[in-house]
Amino acid sequence: MKGNSYFSRKLHSLVGIIPLGGFFIVHALTNFQAFERGPEGFQNGVNFINNLPLLPVLEFVLIYIPLLFHGIYGLYVAYQSNSNLGRFKYGRNWAFTAQRVTGVITFVFVFWHVYQTRFQVYMGNISHEELGSTMNHIASSPLVFTLYVIGVLAASFHFANGLWAFLISWGITVGERAQRVSSKICMAIFLLVSALFILSLVAFRGDEFKEVADAVTAVRSLL
């Protein structure tokens, strides 16, 4: 095994899909429960994740460590490129630059989002049951809502386009036709995943999440 850039770049591509991409999809589907089934649906999703065995280990091994590696190494990869969109206005060249720009946006967004949600649970400021109401607070502010929409669009694009590039970097889609077809599929995935996230953000703004939030505050004040 060689500790060179070939190995790190390959690993960077892999962890972007497994486990990070996988987690991203699970996250999108869990959130979507808020839209599809309301507060209870969302709560069930949260509970399901929190009842997984060895959760702290899973979180570190499958999320935090890969995320930090992918994020920090990714910033270096972005730094190593020179966007030349001015001279070459081709669709794929747009995607090349967009992949780097959305990567940086996602990096910042993920830190902020984790700070607002999971980190607050760690700090004991909120409980898992209150995540729905936390999201209600977040999504109710027009500014934060807009920033979240930008964040999820960037993350979804980065994931979908990264999947397209992963298939090439690992030598799965080799021919021109295969790459063209996979690029269409990946763009469909981008649209689908962003729709899931944006619909859940809209759902979080709903009164039912606010009522849950109010109820929690009420119970709190009683205790």
Partner: peptide, 20 residues
């Protein structure tokens, strides 16, 4: 030789080359 530093991993899939 392609699996060393600066080898094939440097490709970022902008695909400008094939068009040029």
């Amino acid at each position: 030789a392609l699996m060393e530093d600066g080898g094939i991993e440097g490709c970022g899939n902008s695909q400008n080359c094939v068009r040029s």
